[in-house]
């Protein structure tokens, strides 16, 4: 039964990754990121309760505070102050992006196949899905033109990695996890500062302005 829940949560994660691909609004992207965080929390709790690894509960709590509360809050503030709540133009149209996404799912699942045979933990398909989530977030970063969606892509990539870690090896050691969490938090804060600087300079967050900064 636990396996079924994890499968369900894994596919919800994949669903959210695709939902992010098909979203134009930054606000909805943040919401999706928040739901992704909740899914991760649920997943960690399910694994913790089935395997009896108590440290996973702390890890779940950490995820909850960081990824469901703090980071979305920072991001919300940021977009309100930067005034980029609305539509973002995608570079490729959405169905084509999703087609590429489907190809990515097929490839990453097949790549993960040998690893999942080795893993032998609760579920088989989850590594493939985690890998697909990471690659899909990368794809989202590639296809968006506003800098802030790159940050969200980066964060959801980390979510994919975290999911892979919890569902295959029952989580990383607590120290590592805390370190990663801190890194992510600090990263977002620094990027936020950058954004304000970028906007000061170019009056826009569109990445194409950054292309001009290369030396001539």
């Amino acid at each position: 039964m636990a396996g079924q829940y994890i499968n369900l949560l894994a596919s919800i994660l994949l669903l959210l990754a695709f939902a992010m691909l098909s979203q134009r609004r930054i606000k909805s992207l943040i919401n999706l990121f928040m739901i992704q965080g909740m899914t991760l929390v649920a997943n960690t709790v399910v694994i913790a309760s089935t395997t009896g690894q108590t440290h996973l509960y702390y890890s779940a709590l950490l995820t909850l505070t960081l990824k469901v509360v703090i980071l979305p809050w920072i991001l919300y503030r940021m977009i309100r102050q930067l005034n980029v709540e609305w539509d973002v133009e995608t570079l490729i149209n959405i169905p084509s992006t999703m087609l590429v996404g489907i190809a990515i799912v097929i490839i990453s699942f097949n790549l993960a196949l040998p690893i999942s045979h080795l893993a032998g933990t609760i579920t088989r398909g989850t590594i493939g899905i985690a890998m697909a989530c990471v690659l899909l977030s990368l794809l989202m970063m590639i296809t968006r033109s506003k800098a802030i969606s790159q940050v969200i892509g980066f964060l959801s990539m980390e979510n994919g990695l975290f999911f892979a870690a919890t569902s295959t090896t029952y989580g990383m050691p607590m120290v590592v996890e805390l370190g990663v969490a801190l890194d992510v938090l600090v990263g977002v804060l620094i990027l936020g500062v950058f954004f304000f600087q970028i906007r000061e300079k170019f009056e826009s967050l569109d990445l194409k302005h950054l292309e001009k900064t290369e030396e001539e």
Binding site: A10, F18, I94, P95, I106, T123, G125
Partner: peptide, 24 residues
């Protein structure tokens, strides 16, 4: 509208794929 429907179609395809991925 085509984008909306195309997304629906691809979600459907993903459903089938996930069935094969997870065996359920």
């Amino acid at each position: 509208a085509p984008e909306f429907m195309g997304t629906a179609f691809l979600f459907g395809v993903l459903g089938m794929l996930v069935h094969f991925l997870l065996g359920a």
